[in-house]
């Protein structure tokens, strides 16, 4: 990190000075300025009191984005992963992916700091996630070892993501409260999409064009 140059010192001082001048009319000590704002509670999806209601709502909302969603019991996970991957797919895996996940992947390629171009030559990626948000159909990755670096969940065109029923929270405020902002976070709601042509949503631009979410549910309905 370079030392701050003279121009930078004066830019910083000048901007902060301008702000203080601009705010001369404002009561800085008012409670509205000092206390964090408490937002209204998030949605409580129908049946949210029961884990199964939450899982169903989550699955419905993920599917709304035209992602594939399947639910399986814990002992069916290996098979569910195998079924999610096309035959012969070369699949990058994060270093901390559990063994029962790996068992479903015929040819796993462990990520050892692969270059972007190497990732681009692979077909799919299998990761876990930090949590799922039912109301918005979102999965959030915090890129710990069971999810791997940000690049591996991005460059391959097919993302298989495993979420456990007890990782699903009702709405955004519940997610914010559980996530560590110091981790890099990737919130994913469906496959890559764009509305840039006539505001018509179409799936598939730069991120994975196929998103396959497997919900591991000890008590599937």
């Amino acid at each position: 990190m370079s030392a701050r140059t003279g121009a930078q010192t004066s830019a910083r001082a000048e901007i902060l000075g301008r702000i203080r001048t601009a705010l001369l009319d404002v009561d800085r000590d008012a409670e509205s300025a000092t206390a964090p704002i408490v937002a209204p509670p998030g949605a409580r999806p129908p049946g949210a009191d029961h884990p199964d209601g939450l899982v169903a709502h989550f699955a419905e909302r993920v599917a709304d984005y035209r992602a594939t969603v399947v639910r399986c019991p814990p002992d069916g996970l290996t098979a569910a992963i195998a079924a999610a991957l096309p035959a012969g797919a070369r699949v990058v895996v994060p270093p901390g992916l559990p063994d029962d996940h790996l068992a479903g992947i015929p040819t796993p390629v462990p990520d050892s700091g692969l270059a972007a171009s190497e990732l681009d030559a692979l077909d799919a990626v299998v990761t876990r996630c930090r949590l799922g948000i039912a109301e918005t159909g979102t999965i959030v990755l915090d890129h710990t070892p069971d999810q791997g670096r940000r690049a591996i969940a991005l460059v391959p065109d097919h993302h298989v993501c495993i979420v456990h029923a007890d990782q699903i929270v009702p709405d955004v405020p519940d997610a914010i409260a559980r996530l560590d902002p110091h981790r890099p976070l990737t919130w994913i709601s469906g496959p890559s999409a764009t509305s840039d042509i006539e505001l018509d949503r179409v799936e598939g631009v730069h991120g994975p064009r196929r998103l396959h979410v497997i919900v591991v549910d000890p008590d599937p309905a």
């Binding site: 964090p36 704002i37 909302r61 109301e135 159909g137 955004v172 405020p173 890099p184 890559s192």
Partner: peptide
């Protein structure tokens, strides 16, 4: 960080008319 919550609920619905936009990236 906690005050990000209402903004992340308001923005996608107001903007693209989605419950949540496909990708949100945060880095520190």
């Amino acid at each position: 960080w906690a005050e990000l919550d209402p903004l992340l609920r308001l923005l996608p619905r107001s903007s693209t008319g989605e419950r949540m936009n496909p990708y949100t990236s945060t880095w520190t």
